[in-house]
Simulated assay, not measured.
Amino acid sequence: MRTRNNVVVITGASSGVGRACAQRFAARGWTVVLAGRRAAELEELARRCRRRRRARALAVPTDVTDPTAVDELARRALAEYGRIDMWVNSAAVAAFGPLESVPPAVVRGVLDTGVLGYVHGARAALAAMRAQGSGTLVNISSAVGAAPVPYNSAYVMAKSAVRALGGSLRQELRLSGHRDIHVCTVLPATLDTPFFGNAANYSGRAVRPLSPVYTPERAARRIVRLARTPRREVYVGPAARALAVLSALVPATTERFLARQMDRHHLSRTVAAPDTRGNVFDPPAGAARHGGWHGRRRTALRRLTTAVLLTTLVLTAGRALRPPGGAAGRMPAAAGRRRCATRRRRGPWSAG
């Protein structure tokens, strides 16, 4: 697939991963169509993108929870540039706290953005791609879509649904014979974005990212590569893959581990926080790719945590593959004694 002068639509482009993706696509000569709730920030980002190799950029303020607005986003992209080669669903909001503490309207708001927003984007993108015969839809899920965590249940549900959506859409496209239309799901580990500072919070405790923390640029690089080499699912950061494998192999152990990590490290035990709806209904002021969580100390913690996860994975896999009764080739002592007694009774040349 050629990449220069192709057209990509990015939702949630105002900040975080969406913003990082926009700048990386523009640096490679892509035409970028930027969608988000903050018009001023989108226009500022569009100006930045146009300075990258004279890339074309169009800002379209869009609330992804409104299907009519998302259809209009696709119509604007097609009217302006004639095609949509890639569509990146990146918008997301979250609400921290025990489920019973989070107001039902906030839970619904998280699901409206994180599930229905992706459904609206997928419908608009696939309609355009079916008409032109090719294209790639990228849905950004999360490592928690494979390994759930507590105190963020609405977001976990949304990201699990996004992963399931990808599987369903791939099957539909195969059955309809559209082999040149791809659906890719991206599962990042914790990323250094404004996500944590902007989230709704009803836990009573300040939210901190759970190590290891990776940069949004790392996710953007992974997403841009999907334009040339589409894949079903890709992980961002070794920790994301390790958690997914551990959750599949030893789900109960992984749940206990993540529960402790979330309670001890993700929510502060010393810093209180007032209840807030965050950016679930209203976008925050300002725009940035980073949240200020990535640095030397966190890089060291990231590497240490990844090493621990990988070691746990190897040890767990070793225990799962070990034959019952001990190491391979070793006969349990009781069975060995019974066999020797049988041989003595039958004689050395007896059959069986």
Results as ranks from 00 to 15, higher is better:
V183Y: 00
L169Q: 06
R130A: 10
P98N: 00
G135S: 13
L173S: 02
V162L: 02
R179I: 09
S142A: 02
L99F: 06
G114E: 05
L111S: 13
R163I: 00
M157H: 15
A105S: 15
P103A: 09
L169G: 07
G135P: 06
P150M: 01
F96H: 12
R174A: 11
G177E: 06
Y155T: 00
Y155N: 04
P150E: 00
A95P: 05
Y151V: 00
I140S: 08
L116S: 12
I181Q: 04
M129G: 07
G145L: 05
A158G: 13
S168A: 07
A158K: 05
L126H: 09
R130Q: 13
G109H: 02
V138M: 04
S176F: 03
A164E: 09
G97E: 04
G117S: 07
V119W: 10
G97H: 05
I140N: 11
A158E: 08
L165A: 06
R108N: 15
V119E: 02
P148K: 09
C184L: 13
R163H: 14
G133C: 11
M157T: 15
E172L: 00
V186A: 10
A94R: 08
R123Q: 14
A94S: 14
I140P: 13
P103C: 11
Q171A: 00
R123H: 14
F96W: 10
A125S: 02
R174G: 07
A128I: 12
Y151I: 01
D112I: 00
Y151W: 09
Q171K: 03
A164I: 06
G133P: 14
V93D: 05
L175K: 14
V107R: 01
S153F: 02
A124I: 13
L187I: 10
V186D: 11
A127M: 14
E100N: 03
S176K: 12
L175Q: 15
Y151K: 06
R108E: 13
G114M: 07
G97N: 05
A146S: 15
V144K: 13
N139R: 08
A122Q: 07
G133F: 10
V144C: 08
V183C: 02
V119A: 10
Q171Y: 04
V186N: 13
A122I: 00
L137R: 03
D112N: 04
G166R: 07
V115T: 15
C184V: 07
S101L: 14
L116G: 03
A161V: 02
L99N: 01
V106P: 01
V107G: 08
A105H: 14
